[in-house]
Structures are given as structure tokens and as C-alpha cells.
Amino acid sequence: MDETILSTVTTTVASVLAVGLVILKDIRSRRVLRREPHVNREYERGIYMDSILYGSRQDCIDQIRMSHVSFFELCKILAENNLIRETIHMSIKEQVLIFLHIIGHNVRFRVVGGRFYRSIRSIHRYFKVVLGGALTLYKHLIKQPDNSTPLKIRNSRRFYPYFKDCVGAIDGTHIRASVPVEIQGRFRGRKDQTTQNVLAGITFDVKFTYVLAGWEGSAHDSRVLNDALTRPGGFKIPEGKYYLGDAGYGNRNGILSPYRGVRYHLKEFSDHPPENEKELFNLRHSSLRTTIERGFGILKRRFRVLDAEPFWSFETQMEVVLACCVIHNHIMGVDPNDSIMEEAVCDVESQNQSGRVYQTRREVQEENREWTIKRDVICHAMWDDYKNRKNV
């Protein structure tokens, strides 16, 4: 009987050991299968950055929305002004690359973190650092125009001497906004989406001279302009000069608007030349003012974040708009003829399909009499010269 019990115990122990060996072998095999492949993150990150910064010009523009020369010059300016510092964890080049990826393509921090082998926390931290640096450059890159007559006007018989005191154009554009539900009604303008109304002044070489972001999409353009003109450090117009505005602003000190109820948009004159002095004035006014639409078109094409629903706080949304305008001016000063500039053909007519803009009686009364007379003087002189040339 003892021999039977011993045999049974021996058999049981052998079975347990066999099962244990099988389980151990299975666990070991699983460990081998579950082990992730080794990735040299620093090496892969360097290869990716070099492919952008030292590859073809067009690939660089496609990836970071600017050429090599614009990128390295931007890094230099940020470093020399002590706005961005290289850390033991990240170079200045990588910080700026990350920022440009995000605003250029509207990608999430998680996506960029995966591409650069960085944590979301790191991406967010350095995004804010570069954003702050770009905002500091606002006063250096977005400047008031000087008192000289722009080349576009001076070199054209159509515009000179009639618009010799004009320094640029102003207008508002709507940028997608994400705001709390309780205030979304104020941010719904002409479109169903929530937007912020951004006012900008621009010169005829497509550089921004002033940008005001943050107004609700439902706010009227003239209300936004009033705020810009009255706030401390706001929109300044050189003495004796003026900007071209659309009919919504009306004639006021420093703003010259077209005649209302008269043909204005360029497509209306394609087959029918101007028949009177007001139509001629509106045609040339419109030809010059397309610069502001072109500027907005270039800005939104270059920085896709401006044309998509944002995923950060509203304060950051306003700051991003300003930073994009700052970087745009930087590019215009360093490399103004890149492919994005060439491709950004703005359809001005899409902004207002109706050919005429009418105003209420109150708006007529509020127009500045002095600037209405100034517009009439320009209009008469332009029409007289136009008729004389036709008769020659």
C-alpha cells in the first residue's frame, strides 16, 4: 500500500513539474513576443528634422509653411532677442519646428508628439514658449506705415496722384472660434459657425500694419474699428494719410470708402467700363482694396489653424491669430515670393456677391462731411483725366 501511495505522489509531482515547465516556457515566449522594438528616438527625430531643414525648398514649405531661409532667420531673431532659449532637452530649431507644424497644419499636440517622439506635456510647454516669443515680436514686425506714397500707387497712372495719400487698406475677416456654450450666440455672425471678427490694416506690399483679434463674430465692422481707434496703443493713422475701407465703415477721418449704390466689384466692370465719375472711382478703389483680401487669403492658406475649429482656450486662439500675422510679416520681409504667395489667389467676389452696398439714412448722416468732400474732389479729378485720355 505504501508503494502505491509513493507511486501516486511521484506521478503527481511529475505532472505538476511538467505543467510548470510548460507555463514557464509559455511566459518566456510571451515576454519575447511582447517586447517592443527598440527605437533610437533622438536619432529618428534628427533624421526627420534634417529632412525638412536640409531637403528641397518646396518640401520645407509644404511641411512648415515657409522656406529654409525664413525659418533660420526666424530662429536667429528669436534667439538674439532672448525670446527662446535652447535647453538640455530641446534645441531652438526643434521648438520652432513644432510650433510651425501645429499652426501650419492644425494638428493636435498628441500627433506632433508622436512625430517628434516627445510627450504631450513637452509639446504643450514649448508651443507656449514659441507663441510668447512670436507675440513679443509684434511691435517689431507689425509697424505703422511711413508717410511716403506706396510704389503700387506712385508707379501707376490709374492711381497717382489721386490716391497719393493712401497708405493701405483695412477690413475684417472671420476666424473660427471655440467658446463656451453660454456665449456662443454672440459669436455667430453671418455664418452658422462661431467666429471671432478680426480687424486688420495692410499695406500694398501685403504686410500687416495692425491686427485686432477677439471681437465676437456678430459684431459690426464699424464697432470693431471704433474700438481699435480709441483703445490705448490701438490703430493709428499717419497725419494727413488714410486707409481704404469698404462701404460698411463709411467715410470718417482717415478712412476713405466707396460710393454706395454704385457698381463696385471688379467683375461688374469686366464687360461694361465705367460710365460716370463715381463708377470710375469705385472701380479703382476696388482694384487697390483687393490687397486686404489677398492678405487674408495668403494668411489662411499658409496657416491652416485659422480655417479650422480650434482646440485650445479662447485667449490662446486670439494669440495664435496675432502670432500668425507676425510670422507672415517676417516671411514677407525675408522671402516674399514663395509658392504659397503664388498660389494664394483670393476670390474677392466671394466676400460679397451683391454688386452694390446700400446704407440707411442714419448711416448717410453719420458719414464725415469733410472726407466725403475729399472723396468727391478725387473722384472729379480722376474722371476728368479719364475722359481726356479717351479723347486723345
Rank of each mutant, 00 (worst) to 15 (best):
E3R: 13
T4R: 14
S7E: 15
T8V: 14
T8Y: 14
V19K: 09
L21S: 12
R30S: 13
R35I: 05
N40H: 10
E42G: 12
G46H: 09
M49I: 14
D50P: 00
Y54D: 10
S56E: 12
Q58R: 13
I61H: 06
I64Y: 04
M66L: 15
F72S: 05
K76I: 03
K76P: 07
L78A: 06
N81W: 01
L83H: 05
I84N: 03
H89M: 13
M90G: 02
K93E: 15
V107G: 00
V107A: 07
V112C: 11
G113I: 07
G114A: 07
R115P: 03
Y117G: 05
S119M: 04
S119K: 05
H124R: 13
H124F: 11
R125P: 03
R125C: 10
Y126Q: 07
Y126H: 14
K128N: 15
V129A: 08
G133H: 07
G133A: 09
L135Y: 08
L135H: 06
L135A: 09
T136W: 12
K139A: 13
I142C: 04
S148E: 15
T149H: 07
I153S: 08
R154S: 13
R154W: 12
R154A: 14
S156Y: 01
R158N: 14
P161N: 10
C166S: 09
A169K: 02
A169V: 11
I170G: 08
R176P: 07
V179S: 02
Q184W: 08
R186N: 15
K191P: 07
Q196C: 06
N197V: 02
A200H: 02
V206H: 09
F208E: 02
A213Y: 06
S218R: 10
D221Q: 06
P232M: 06
P232C: 07
G233Y: 10
P238T: 06
E239Y: 10
L244M: 05
N251M: 13
N253F: 10
S257I: 02
P258R: 01
G261T: 06
K267Y: 13
F269P: 00
D271C: 10
P274M: 06
E275S: 12
E275P: 00
N276K: 04
E277V: 00
R289K: 06
T291W: 06
I292Y: 03
G295C: 08
G295N: 04
K300P: 04
K300V: 01
R302L: 03
R304H: 13
E309R: 12
W312G: 00
F314L: 11
Q317S: 05
M318N: 15
V321C: 08
L322K: 12
H328V: 05
I331H: 01
D335T: 02
D335A: 05
P336Q: 03
N337G: 09
S339N: 12
E343M: 11
V345W: 07
V345I: 15
V348H: 09
S350N: 09
Q351N: 15
N352L: 13
T360K: 01
V364S: 11
E366I: 02
E370S: 10
T372I: 04
I378H: 00
I378E: 01
H380R: 13
M382C: 04
W383F: 08
W383R: 00
W383L: 00
K387S: 06
V392H: 12
